[in-house]
Design a protein around this nucleic acid. Structure first.
Lengths: 247, 247
DNA sequence: TGGAAGCCTCCCATTCAACGGAAGCGGTGC
DNA sequence: GCACCGCTTCCGTTGAATGGGAGGCTTCCA
């Protein structure tokens, strides 16, 4: 780091600070933030003050710290996820109105599906896919739909690391799932995420037939309209893809 | 700054880098980023590499730089705007379905309305309120609805600085607008933003009757259903407020 | 085909901003 | 009244950040 102690740069510290906010908490006392980020209190204090000066963090009079509006603004006006979201929203709304269920939009990041948007219907089944939440590829229909339509190279890298972590038997099961997903053109996971729900996702393909996103719904197990669900999702996915190519 | 030249800290530099991305561009060459941010090329290169290492930026093989998914994720899982957005979305969707027009949600930041969410209908009138976009208080119905329901102190600070910038006559006009907005319980701007549209916004009030957000629609000038629009918006705003108080 | 121009990348001596322990300050509870 | 806890300020030390310069790669002309 800059001077003396622990060994990371200012950038590292800032990232640690930003990452230290837990998923659902909006404001933390300075001291807790220091603890969570593993930074000395003084350093935390100084950085927070600087960041707050730019509006990236917000320091309330009571000593609480929370992410700032300016940070949200900076990110949400230029983030790559935004273009995707803008293209997808009208279609997601359509799907939601027709099927009256949770709809979600995800992209692949590393070996996980990162959920970019989610529309939930009051009264619909609970949906674990939070906005900005992550789920492993092999336990989410979104993840499967995304991974099934990637380069062979990327897929084998994924399967290799999966084998290292989970063993050969589990890996073979995932390989079968991916293959099915690819040939069917959609992914379904019955009761894996949540015993009472059924996740279905289709890929949003670019011109080279690679998945740049996935569009999915989470419905109750008893819902049996697969014939209607899948074509509706696929049509919407094509619409999103078209909008992405010619904005 | 850290060493030698220009006079700002590492935090300043990082903020400059993040702010340097123009509104609608997703990826920039390194050299252009350096130019826009006013940082030496070398410094830009080093910072970008560090930030990219954390996923806050994304450096493509071609030398282009764009905001990273990780940054989006960090911000969008903890930002204060998120709770508001989550609370408001179902109501915004209802409004949109019933009125079939653009719906937007804004908060007050400084002397501007910052748009947090926007649902636009295909085929509806154009809506200048971009997500993460800003509009001055006095030229947006959202801004008026927000400012009209703030502390007297904040209002007079606003009017003071407005008078300095725009003169007394203009300030009096804004004062009247704010007063009308307050007493009517909603703001309307006919053809100010765009000659062919009509902006209407209502405040989302907390328990102390202060506006924490505004909910608005943008409709064509010919739309005359004010009697229907305003109550619908006000009902939705109350619903949002209730959700915010007891999550 | 040669070479000029533009861009990203790496190197490295200089130096001042970042660091963090210690002390100060204000509030709260026993 | 005293002990405790958290936020804030102070300040001497020091090594990380800096950025000019040089190298390597590609592209675009002449």
């Amino acid at each position: 780091m800059a001077n003396s102690a622990s060994g990371d740069s200012v950038v590292d510290r800032i990232v640690r600070l930003l990452s230290a906010f837990p998923e659902d908490v909006t404001a933390l006392p300075l001291s807790e933030l220091a603890q969570r980020s593993g930074l000395p209190l003084t350093t935390t204090h100084r950085l927070v003050r600087q960041l707050a000066g730019h509006g990236l963090l917000d320091a309330t009079p009571g000593g609480l710290v929370r992410p700032g509006l300016r940070l949200w603004e900076l990110v949400n006006r230029t983030a790559p996820a935004l273009a995707l979201r803008q293209a997808a929203m009208p279609f997601m709304e359509d799907i939601q109105q027709v099927l009256n269920q949770n709809v979600n939009l995800a992209v692949l990041d590393g070996w996980e599906a990162l959920f970019v948007e989610r529309l939930s219907r009051r009264g619909s089944v609970s949906n674990r896919a939070r906005v900005a939440g992550r789920m492993p590829v092999h336990t989410s229909s979104a993840g499967l739909a995304l991974m099934a339509h990637q380069d062979k190279l990327l897929q084998s890298q994924y399967l290799d690391q999966f084998a290292d972590a989970e063993g050969k038997a589990a890996t073979d099961a995932v390989r079968v799932l991916l293959s099915e997903t690819f040939h069917q053109g959609f992914a379904q996971l019955k009761g894996v995420v949540d015993p009472d729900t059924w996740g279905i996702a289709v890929p949003v393909l670019n011109s080279r037939q690679r998945a740049v996103a996935s569009l999915g719904v989470v419905v109750p197990l008893r819902e049996m309209r697969l014939q209607a669900l899948v074509p509706a999702l696929q049509t919407a996915a094509r619409g999103i893809a078209r909008r992405l190519e010619s904005p």
